[in-house]
Each structure stands twice: as structure tokens, then as C-alpha cells.
């Protein structure tokens, strides 16, 4: 048991920290592939290397980084950039609501950092491991969380920085920006598991292609609003 009081890290047990590392390790390859693709896509789109490094070290959200890349490239209004990232990241709000009981007893700094580190893979592993535990917020649970989060963060940062440093070497004809679309597709497909989601995807896809000429990339927000409304309507209809 870690006894030293730390402002940002909650007390945790070493055993479960190691267990968290071991659980996340098999996923490190997939995280690294994602990271390299993201880093390469960022510099191939034209972002300078120093800015790209700040971008990936600070934002630490691959799908939001890839999603805002085409917007930043054309200098879209900042509010469009931020709303787009927020929309892509809204899934994390569900994650935080689902795992809050494991962290709610901690000081706010520790909660803030734990939330920042709570990505897609760590959340999935953690839920699978502790969903049946009746006691929530133990040092064992926090150790497992930090172990997985540490592997995720290190693998992601090393890979995305490698992608940023090497990405400039690839000729643009290779079409590496396509890899960014493929990486986003890997997040999108598992979420397309029910009729309302599929209906939303189809409507949004058609609208976003038709409105691509709209100024300031506003076609994106318009198609998300309409597509989202269609998904909600389909949900209400299919559950009624």
C-alpha cells in the first residue's frame, strides 16, 4: 500500500498496479498503431512539428485530435473546432458517469487527473474487472486503474511522437491521411451496433457529403444535429 500522500495520485496497492499494467500490455500494440497513425496524419496534414508535439502531449484524445485536424487545417472558427471535439468526446461523459463511484471519494485534484486518464480501453478493462465489486473506491481498484492508464499514456505518447517525427518523411502521394479516416472508423464501427445508431450514421453521412461546400465547415455541425435528431427519433420509436 502506497502511504505517501500525493496531491494528484490517489493511494493504491502495488499488486493491483502491476495487475493493471499486465492487463493493458496486450493492448499496447493497438494503442501504438493508433498513436503512430495519428502522429503521421497530423504532420502530413501540414502541422509543424513543435505545434504537433504540444497538440498530442496536451490534448491526449486521439479521436478528437484526428477529427479536428481537417478543421484546424482550414483555420475553421475556434468554436467549431471545440464543439466538434466535444461532440466526439461526449462518449467520455458516459464513461465518467459509469465509473464515478470508484473515484468520487477522492480529493478533486485526484478525480480530475483520473478522469483525464480514463480513455476508451482503460474504461473497458476497468469495468470488466470491477463491475461486480460491491465496495467501490478501494486502493486496489485505483492501483489497477493507474497501471492500465500508465501503459496507455506511455504507449500512446511514444507512438504519436514517433509518428510526428517520422511522418514528415512519407511522400504525400502515399495518402496517409486515409489512415486517419481508418483509425476513426475503428472507433465508429463498434458504436454502430443498433438501428438508431445506424440510421444516424446514414443520415449524417449523406448530409455531411452534400453540405461539404458550406462555409466555415458548418456543414459538419448541421449534419450532426440532423443525424443525431434522427437517431434519437429512431431510438424513441424502437423502444416505444
Amino acid at each position: 500500500m502506497r502511504r505517501a500522500r500525493h496531491r494528484w495520485i490517489a493511494p493504491f496497492t502495488k499488486e493491483s498496479y502491476r495487475e493493471g499494467i499486465a492487463a493493458m500490455m496486450p493492448l499496447a500494440l493497438a494503442i501504438s498503431v493508433w498513436g503512430v497513425v495519428t502522429g503521421v496524419a497530423i504532420v502530413n496534414a501540414g502541422m509543424t512539428v513543435p505545434i504537433a508535439l504540444v497538440f498530442t502531449l496536451m490534448v491526449f484524445a486521439g479521436s478528437a485530435q484526428l477529427a479536428t485536424l481537417p478543421l484546424l487545417a482550414v483555420g475553421a472558427p475556434l468554436w467549431v473546432v471545440w464543439i466538434t471535439a466535444a461532440l466526439v468526446n461526449l462518449r467520455f461523459v458516459i464513461f465518467s458517469a459509469a465509473s464515478r463511484n470508484y473515484f468520487i471519494g477522492l480529493p478533486w485534484r485526484q478525480r480530475l487527473l483520473a478522469g483525464y486518464l480514463n480513455g476508451d480501453l482503460g474504461f473497458a478493462l476497468f469495468q470488466r474487472r470491477f463491475a461486480d465489486d460491491t465496495e467501490r473506491g478501494t486502493a486496489e481498484q485505483h492501483g489497477y486503474f493507474y497501471g492500465g492508464a500508465m501503459v496507455n499514456w506511455v504507449a500512446w505518447q511514444i507512438a504519436s511522437i514517433a509518428g510526428i517525427l517520422l511522418g514528415g518523411l512519407a511522400p504525400t502521394q502515399w495518402g496517409l491521411e486515409l489512415a486517419a479516416s481508418l483509425a476513426l472508423l475503428a472507433v465508429l464501427i463498434p458504436m454502430a451496433n443498433k438501428f438508431p445508431a445506424v440510421a444516424g450514421i446514414v443520415v449524417t453521412a449523406v448530409l455531411s457529403v452534400l453540405t461539404v461546400g458550406m462555409p466555415m465547415k458548418l456543414g459538419l455541425l448541421v449534419s450532426v444535429l440532423v443525424g443525431g435528431a434522427v437517431a434519437m427519433a429512431a431510438d424513441a420509436w424502437s423502444t416505444s
Binding site: 479521436s63 484526428l66 477529427a67 481537417p70 466538434t84 461532440l87 466526439v88 468526446n89 461526449l90 462518449r91 458516459i94 479516416s181 476513426l184 472507433v187 465508429l188 458504436m191 454502430a192 438508431p196 445508431a197 444516424g200 450514421i201 449524417t204 453521412a205 448530409l207 455531411s208 456543414g219 459538419l220 449534419s223 450532426v224 443525424g227 443525431g228 437517431a231 434519437m232 431510438d235
Partner: peptide, 11 residues
């Protein structure tokens, strides 16, 4: 749940 699905599609 549906907002990120649609946002990723729109990208």
C-alpha cells in the same frame, strides 16, 4: 451516445 457516432461520421 449518438452524438459521437454522428460526429465521427461527419468527419
Amino acid at each position: 451516445r449518438y452524438a459521437p457516432v454522428c460526429a465521427l461520421t461527419a468527419i
